[in-house]
Design a protein around this nucleic acid. Structure first.
Length: 697
DNA sequence: GAACGGACAGTTTGG
DNA sequence: CTGTCCGTTC
């Protein structure tokens, strides 16, 4: 106990008390837990983010320097949210405390970010000692596919004669092997049985891919983790990297993979200072080799681990919780958790049947505007769906009615072809060995196809600058532009790295006429490029710009050409995956039909269906006050042209009939003609035509 | 031989 | 809307 007169001790006590003040007993225990390994199993809405933020604050108050705390999250959005809360907490604590204590609390920065972003930072600092080129650049998913494709073509594996897995599939298989630490044969056997016969080809392909990455001075997403682990496993370098951190906190631990769990264990071999937070009921990244085993095995990996469970839900009303508890209770295996709340009031979640997608869109827009009239801003509401394209009809309706929205997930701004084109100029200037960037940029020039581009890229890679391109013999169609192009590249390569916007401007000036020739809707695309240039002004140097764009580019798409103004109100549209960790007062889960959730792309085995169930659970548990689950009965045939054929869809299997009492079931348009609803037509024009053709075939 | 333009098909989730 | 295939043009 304190001697009673020591003022600092008292002040310290006061600081701890302030940090713990607003927490419940479970959160308090987690926040103030000592140095032994800690696993917090936290149900949806139980204040997981708050607890982690408080724990970081508590560690700092206890004297751990902020710069020695590593906070690993799943998205940068989550990291900045958590750090913001930690910071606010420390500031309020510091305001009460004495001056010297206050300074210590707000001094220095916590290392916060995704595994990939932190890996990049550490590799830039220490990578050279394991032979990593200092100027390495990072390939995003589509760059990696491009490289895989180039290698496959080089090995003559992709020809039309033989069937060989698509480049995307090849990359998935490769990535699975690396992230799950499973041998190729096993991955093929268990997950890609139709590629079993291509094992030899894939091995050759992967070897070539790895070789090319090395020669190109590039790392893909998987490499970032692989090299981070490699540094930690090195007897000389490991202790150096490890020695940077006293505490490692991992959010969304259920969605980490074997490689990431290794990294955590290598950072803190005895587990001291490790805090992992997760919920096995919300594991939704199995397709990316995440494994719930990391949570389940945590106590085995760290025998002196403490496991705490948070069950008190602060987010949702009891009726919403009853429904979501029922959804997850059907899961085949899980840690029993029963979430409860004090928020007893509130309506049953709505389960709304719509005749078709258009009616669903109408219904959602009506409800959104209705809630807004009652004082719920658009930002307090979100529409969630399984796949990015599921919001297409809704987006049109929102645009038609002038409702602003921002869409998360799906094709990102930086993944659009013209944006990638522009950025590729800077990437090539940054790293002339990057053949993916080189091929992309060269391919833009008239007269240059894959072949010529390959030769030119190879010449470039022999040197370190663009001299070898000066005065080079190029196809006649290229010769007019070539000198300007080479001049541009030389300018970019020698330009001060700090002037990102200036470099983008120069590249844009060169690229604009090429884009106009290439695209029909060039003006819209050129407007996007101005946004990229504006984005560039926010970065201090080119390396950061390129890295951040690759690892965490802007996520918005939709009716905004750029980021919405902060004071503007807008509706959130998001994939269920991107909604993870977030919450809104009103949530609309649309397309809750079998085939969409569970996606018929993911009904291969029981484990996949279980993951879809958890995904649906994640979506529904985002709701605080009101939850709508809607599903159209009728889906018109997709594809080009107007087709009058359609099929029927059933309500998602995750809400079986016996769960109906937990919902308020209704029709989106109660005025529908009774005949239409009473006897649903089962025939489709397609099925009738099929019957017809069956007669004469 | 290489590039280009037109036609056509497929399209989960994400760092 | 992008990737891919194929016939035509340089």
């Amino acid at each position: 106990m304190s001697t009673g007169v020591s003022a600092p001790a008292t002040a310290e006590q006061a600081v701890f008390e302030t940090i713990l003040r607003d927490l419940n007993p479970g959160q308090r225990a987690a926040t103030s837990h000592g140095d032994t390994p800690l696993l917090i199993v936290a149900g949806a809405g139980t204040g997981k983010t708050a607890t982690l933020a408080h724990r970081v604050a508590y560690l700092i108050a206890r004297g751990v320097p902020p710069g020695r705390i590593l906070l690993l999250t799943f998205t940068r959005r989550a990291a900045s949210e958590m750090l913001r809360r930690t910071d606010a907490l420390l500031r309020s604590v510091a305001a009460d405390a004495e001056g010297s204590a206050a300074r210590a609390l707000t001094d220095g920065h916590v290392w916060g970010g995704t595994f990939h972003a932190i890996a990049t930072r550490l590799l830039r600092m220490h990578g050279e000692s394991i032979g990593l080129p200092p100027g390495f650049t990072v390939l995003d998913r589509s760059d990696a596919e491009d490289l895989m494709h180039a290698v496959r073509t080089g090995l003559d594996l992709g020809g039309t004669r033989r069937r060989f897995p698509q480049k995307g599939t090849c990359l998935d298989i490769y990535s699975r092997c690396v992230n799950a630490a499973e041998p190729l044969a096993h991955v093929l056997e268990t997950r890609y049985p139709w590629c079993r016969d291509d094992a030899d080809g894939l091995k050759a392909l992967f070897a070539g891919y790895v070789e090319r990455k090395e020669a190109n001075h590039v790392l893909d997403y998987d490499d970032l983790l692989l090299f981070w682990r490699g540094m930690l496993a090195d007897p000389a370098l490991g202790p150096v990297v490890r020695g940077r951190f006293d505490a490692v906190l991992v959010d969304e631990y259920q969605d980490t993979n074997a490689l990431q769990a290794d990294i955590v264990a290598l950072l803190r071999p005895d587990g001291s200072g490790v805090t992992a937070v997760g919920d096995d009921a919300q594991a939704i990244y199995g397709f990316r080799a995440a494994t719930v085993r990391n949570i389940l095995d945590f106590p085995t990996r760290f025998p002196d681990a403490t496991v705490l469970t948070l069950e008190r839900n602060y987010r949702s009303t009891q009726p919403i919780l009853d429904a979501t508890n029922a959804v997850i209770s059907q899961a085949a295996e899980r840690y029993e958790k029963d979430l409860f709340t004090d928020r007893q009031g509130g309506a049953l979640p709505a389960l709304v049947t719509c005749r078709d997608e258009n009616e669903q869109a109408d219904y959602v827009v009506e409800r959104v505007l209705g809630h807004r009239e009652q004082g719920m801003s658009l930002k307090d509401q979100a529409v969630l769906f399984r796949a990015a394209h599921h919001s297409a009809v809704l987006e049109l309706e929102l645009e038609r009615r002038g409702v602003p929205f921002v869409k998360y997930g799906g094709l990102k701004f930086v993944e659009m072809a013209h944006v990638k084109d522009l950025v590729a100029f800077l990437r090539l200037a940054e790293n002339p060995h990057d053949s993916v960037a080189a091929l992309r940029v060269l391919g833009l020039l008239p007269g240059i196809g894959p072949r010529t581009a390959g030769t030119l890229a190879a010449t470039l890679a022999e040197g370190t600058d663009f001299e070898s391109w000066v005065g080079r013999d190029v196809p006649s169609a290229t010769s007019v532009l070539w000198p300007d192009f080479v001049a541009l590249m030389r300018t970019l390569a020698s330009a001060p790295a700090s002037d990102v916007a200036g470099q983008l401007h120069a590249a844009r000036a060169f690229y604009a006429p090429l884009a106009e020739h290439r695209y029909d809707n060039a003006s819209a695309r050129l407007a996007d490029l101005e946004q990229v240039e504006a984005l560039g002004t926010r970065f201090a140097d080119r390396t950061r710009f390129l890295t951040d764009l690759t690892l965490d580019g802007p996520h918005w798409t939709g009716d905004f050409a750029g980021p919405p103004l902060l004071d503007e109100d807008y509706l959130i549209l998001s994939t269920m995956h991107s909604a993870k960790g977030l919450e809104w007062r009103a949530v609309y889960v649309i397309h809750a039909a079998d085939g969409n959730i569970p996606s018929d792309m993911a009904t291969g085995d029981a484990a996949e269906i279980e993951e879809e169930r958890r995904l649906f659970y994640v979506a529904c548990t985002r709701a605080r006050d009101v939850l709508y689950v809607t599903h159209p009965l009728r889906y018109y045939a997709v594809g080009r042209g107007r087709s009058d054929s359609y099929g029927y869809a059933l309500r998602t299997r995750f809400i079986p009939d016996r769960m109906l009492p937990l919902f308020e079931a209704s029709q989106a348009a109660p005025d529908a003609s009774p005949a239409d609803e009473a006897a649903p037509v089962v025939a489709t024009t397609a099925s009738i035509r099929a019957m017809g053709s069956a007669m004469w075939e």
